[in-house]
Design a protein around this nucleic acid. Structure first.
Length: 111
DNA sequence: CCATTGACTTAAG
DNA sequence: CCTTAAGCCAATG
């Protein structure tokens, strides 16, 4: 059996766990995976995640709640719309109440 | 193999 | 939270 637990697969696994109406950050996910300094790699993984329907990449934003990845979606507005559909308020491409709806895998999963 | 790039983060101002 | 600078690591050319 080949456990091809690639970095990407691990990222997908965490991102899939993000509940609706919540958002997480690349750094938080990276840290959870043990590669805290490779937050960029999480973004890179997300780039590949576009092909995967199970990976809600729109719930992953940067550390200040900025929709840094919106430009990589089908349409730049897509990410904001998806988040708003889940009850996340967006203003100027930024998540409102970011600290409140922020979902940290290290905290939420280790409780 | 070396250079560039990127959906980031942190530190300092 | 804004800007500038530097660090980080994998993929891509």
């Amino acid at each position: 059996m080949k456990n091809d637990a690639s970095f990407f697969d691990l990222v997908y696994d965490v991102v899939r766990l993000i509940p609706s109406g919540r958002v997480s950050s690349y750094g938080a996910i990276a840290k959870y995976l043990g590669t805290a300094k490779s937050a960029r790699m999480v973004g890179w993984a997300m780039n590949a995640a576009r092909a995967l329907p199970d990976v809600p990449a729109h719930r992953v934003v940067n550390r200040v709640g900025l929709l840094s990845g919106k430009n990589h979606f089908a349409h730049p507005k897509r990410m904001q719309e998806l988040l708003e559909q889940e009850g996340v308020e967006i203003k100027e491409d930024r998540v409102l109440h970011f600290t409140k709806i922020f979902w940290d895998p290290e905290k939420e999963l280790s409780l």
